[in-house]
């Protein structure tokens, strides 16, 4: 399998590796650092990150639209948003470099990634939306919970 060529650069060519083995250790270092950052943030939970970074906009259709577009910053705690972004970054490097997605054809890559990403986003959106709605019924709908 001599024709098996690996693409040896990550960060869009910012870091180049000499061999595939070297790239693997480089990616390991990256993943370890990200995990360490996550754990440290998870233990210390800095106060500034425990609230959403933007307050919800009030009044009018424009405000509602802005609230929808910027919803990750308005309705999610900054800390959780950081965790989610870091997780996606880790998932990217595991798939691209450990599973060699970087070396597959573009069509196979899209086939796998787009399908999964689309369906997962769809499912997560529906379920979280519904969960939030049921929560509002519990809190505002005269349902007694504390007994």
């Amino acid at each position: 399998m001599a024709e098996h060529a690996h693409k040896l650069e990550i960060f869009r060519g910012l870091i180049k590796f000499k061999s595939n083995t070297q790239k693997i250790w480089g990616v390991l270092l990256l993943l370890s650092v990200i995990t360490a950052v996550e754990v440290v943030l998870g233990i210390y939970k800095p106060d500034i990150l425990m609230v959403p970074s933007i307050q919800a906009f009030e009044g009018g259709l424009g405000a509602t639209l802005l609230n929808i577009i910027l919803s990750p910053f308005i309705y999610t705690k900054s800390l959780n948003l950081i965790f989610i972004v870091l997780t996606v970054v880790k998932a990217y490097y595991i798939t691209w470099d450990f599973m060699h997605m970087r070396d597959e054809t573009k069509s196979l890559r899209r086939l796998v990634v787009w399908t999964a990403v689309f369906l997962i986003c769809y499912l997560v959106f529906i379920l979280l939306q519904e969960g939030g709605y049921i929560e509002s019924v519990y809190t505002e709908g005269f349902i007694k919970r504390d007994f």
Binding site: V124, L127, L128, E130, G131, G132, I134, E135, Y138
Partner: peptide, 8 residues
């Protein structure tokens, strides 16, 4: 996530 949002 659904259950957690339900009992957030």
């Amino acid at each position: 996530g659904f259950s957690r949002f339900k009992f957030i």
